[in-house]
Design a protein around this nucleic acid. Structure first.
Lengths: 347, 347
DNA sequence: GTGACAATCTGTAACGTTTCAGTGTATTGA
DNA sequence: TCAATACACTGAAACGTTACAGATTGTCAC
């Protein structure tokens, strides 16, 4: 009996958190055996394995994350990197929920790593990589030539991007088909007789800005409608600015009779601007907008909406990173989400 | 020269992450000395201290979190516990940003711990406590008699609640003065001639439901207005349900001529319901609503709003938890945020 | 010159885990 | 009978950190 040998301090103690040592003592085995039994290693006898796992379950053993992390370097952490000021609000919580859903029955934790406007977006990524704080990273506001993606690709850090890049490099992503969205929006507007369309774009510099612009332009020429330039603002601008610019635009003679807007909050401003100019939605002008929660049709029943599901995006992104960590091929972890139909008010 | 003694594997290696051992080698000191020098221990010579800190800064030393955590039990993690389905969306991201701001220049990380409707809200807390996953916890959806608060208080886990409890126990919190909000809203409505008011309440069971109801009731009798009961829904209900119930209510003869709404999203539904019943905002009925982002006035210019700053709440909560961890008295870490004035459309 | 005492510095052990290199025992083949 | 081999298990070491209990100086009083 090597009991008296082993228990120099542990065991008896009231109710500490159980460790491998505790399990080893209870089962009469060595810590090594217990460790391997718990992870179904082949060199452990079937009965022993079952026995250890039973006891572990009974006493609610949970591996100490710090121990594992120190020994193996595995953090069991997925980091979601967010821009503190720019990210559209509802977007964030939906993504978080989506990620959470997927992560829920894995050993992974979600940590939110913020960065602010003043910082280089690469900063938080560098921090994560240098300190080895995460096994996987999710980034958004993806650019065609994204230094963050390049950086992580170089160091072999698993990551997924919300939005595609365009660097000829393969990595996991999830993206909404903004080309299709813009094109569909234009077709719909043309279908209800609108000929002079304006586009409120995503932030210049982000990949989906290009997609949106292209979809818009291609569909314009397809349906033979024309563009009214509206480049002075993007959805990143403040509500006030968008509103003001829209009002300015709508007071001109060559004003558009249709709008395509890439974000719900911005659409509120566009509509306000339209009304500031004394025009009426649905009569003088129609607006197709993306939205992520089902609220725009309450705002103005005349609004035309296309839904983008950010919760889904979060889930897909989480799945991708986990897949990549699990050794799947990056190319197999890319997904697109297609826009639904343009929907008019169904009330 | 004990160099040749020490470097059995380390040092030479291309560019591993520096550890205390690396620093010890570079400075010619022992790891213990380096460790203490970095934390300004008094028994280290002033010059040595400076020297070590200089070198550490130069090579970008950062303590290994797993090492610290394993040795000391300190996780340097603050956990924000969120209900995956119920939490109002914009709320979440604002809180997260608020917390992030405060946490940014501390060694703390923010982890988001979700739980879903099906679960006992205590589950995630138990998990955090049992696995020792966080040094501090922030919870929301606080109840008057909150089992989570009680649980953490019992085990001495530092936490702060968004919203107060009412158990006679002292703990850090941040709360918006919903009593004052409801009372002010009522006074304002009375001031513009509204006499029959309805209240769309916070979720029953949460502490601020009571606060809101009380503020509403007290102000009603103060101004001599009367209440039109509207208890069938709360802001937790779906947009559709709130809308339907509002419409029902507004079609009755004894309909209210004023509404107080505790959340912006719900207000959209209330307004939709009002209009479904063929009534007009500002003429037949006025609505005072809380909002957390400045969007409601775009929705309907007739809306009356009171702003609640969730980013501030996040910051305050983070400050509180950090303060508590730092040893401050819980009673000194309680804060209230007062509602601003009821603002009409300033367009 | 000795003992006491600061002032600095140091090695060892421990936190919980996994990996490496075994150890012992039974089974097999010859 | 002996070696070879498979099987089931084990101790020691290591990950990076900090706490504990010294160790090595030099200074000072006597």
């Amino acid at each position: 009996m090597d009991r008296d040998q082993t228990d120099k301090d542990d065991e008896a103690s009231a109710h500490e958190r159980p460790t491998l040592k505790t399990l080893a003592f209870m089962t009469g085995l060595g810590v090594t055996t217990v460790s391997r039994a718990l992870k179904d290693a082949p060199e452990i006898g079937a009965e022993t394995r079952r026995r250890v796992q039973l006891v572990a379950r009974q006493i609610g053993y949970r591996p100490n994350r710090a121990g594992v992390r120190l020994r193996t370097g595995k953090t069991n952490v997925i980091s979601l990197v967010l821009n503190t000021e720019r990210e559209i609000m509802s977007f964030v919580s939906d993504i978080i929920y989506g990620v959470s859903e997927v992560i829920a029955d894995t050993p992974y934790h979600l940590i939110v790593t913020p960065y602010s406007r003043s910082q280089d977006p690469l900063d938080p990524i560098r921090y994560l990589v240098e300190t080895g704080s995460a096994d996987g990273v999710i980034i958004s506001r993806t650019q065609p030539n994204d230094p963050r993606a390049r950086y992580m690709l170089e160091r072999g850090i698993p990551f997924a991007t919300h939005g595609r890049t365009d660097m000829g490099l393969i990595h996991p992503y999830h993206d909404f088909d903004n080309y299709a969205f813009a094109a569909e929006a234009v077709r719909h507007l043309a279908g209800i007789g609108r000929r002079r369309l304006a586009l409120l774009t995503p932030p210049v510099g982000l990949t989906y800005h290009g997609h949106t612009v292209n979809g818009f332009a291609d569909a314009l020429s397809e349906v033979g409608a024309s563009e009214v330039p509206f480049n002075t603002v993007s959805i990143d601008h403040s509500i006030e600015q968008i509103r003001m610019r829209t009002a300015q635009l709508m007071r001109r003679d060559d004003r558009p009779d249709g709008f395509v807007s890439s974000a719900a909050a911005a659409t509120l401003a566009v509509v306000a601007g339209i009304e500031d100019a004394g025009l009426k939605l649905g009569r003088d002008v129609d607006v197709v907008s993306k939205q992520s929660s089902d609220l725009l049709h309450l705002f103005r029943r005349e609004l035309l909406v296309v839904n983008e599901n950010f919760r889904l995006a979060g889930s897909e992104l989480a799945r991708s990173v986990l897949g990549l960590i699990g050794g799947a091929a990056p190319g197999s972890l890319q997904s697109m989400s297609l826009p639904g139909e343009v929907v008019a008010y169904r009330g």
